[in-house]
Design a protein around this nucleic acid. Structure first.
Lengths: 132, 132
DNA sequence: TATTGTTATACTCTATAACTATA
DNA sequence: TATAGTTATAGAGTATAACAATA
């Protein structure tokens, strides 16, 4: 448990440094990365994936919309649902920041051997399962 | 990387549920657990352990002091340093919430075998090391 | 009635930088 | 001069609940 927290803190701190100059807050980067390579997701789906509650998410999306990174689109079949998708500008930012971020993180994972990476992947999957 | 984020999110969400009715915010719980079983730590030490920056920490400690959970004490040898320690009330809360929390989390870890736990521990230690 | 997202409130945290006091 | 903590500012996130629109 301690180790999980420590490992994640170290990772999260390193990770946040990666997109520090992108003008994104942590939740905003989370949303950007969640929306990347999709045609748009509903508020509900985004909330489930990022663990941001709906009231908060409205504000986060508002600010990203002001920055022209995302766009709302009401679902025509069920008008209660609002989809959020990246704009062209949002996609450009995603395509710039995401690979950078992956590389940045990969630098550290490259310090490990293939078998270590496999073990870590399995360990994390088990951890994930027990805490769902 | 995805797995690490997912595993931690699942854990963090479960963890926060554990002390939801303790009237503590996440950073405050973090500080409480950091100060538990110590004679007090300086702002600097608390900041290093919790990754809360100094400006923010002053506010967090202010609010915990208002709730009578912690007390400041200026170091007599080096008067620039302020130690923060749990009050009796803070200790009582720690002694109530911490074991509860450990049990609560243990419930989930108990789903794993000893060898799985060992593997996970090792994996997390490696992760921690590469991201320092 | 149940669900989706918005609004409202009040507070807490965050980042940043300038500042005070000690060393 | 360097360090420890405080203050100031402005913005962002959080929890919660009530609300509107839609199903």
């Amino acid at each position: 448990m301690r180790e999980l927290v420590r490992a994640y803190q170290a990772f999260a701190s390193y990770d946040a440094d990666g997109y520090r100059d992108s003008e994104l807050t942590v939740p905003q980067a989370d949303v950007l990365f969640t929306l990347g390579n999709t045609d748009g997701l509903s508020f509900k789906e985004i909330g489930e994936k990022t663990l941001i509650t709906k009231g908060t998410l409205t504000g986060v999306i508002d600010r990203m919309e002001q920055k022209k990174l995302v766009k709302r689109r009401v679902c025509t079949e069920d008008r209660r649902i609002t989809y959020v998708a990246l704009t062209k500008q949002g996609e450009r930012l995603f395509e710039k920041v995401f690979p950078q971020q992956v590389d940045y993180i990969k630098q550290r994972f490259d310090r490990l051997s293939k078998s270590e990476l496999k073990d870590i992947g399995q360990a994390l999957t088990k951890l994930h399962e027990i805490f769902i």
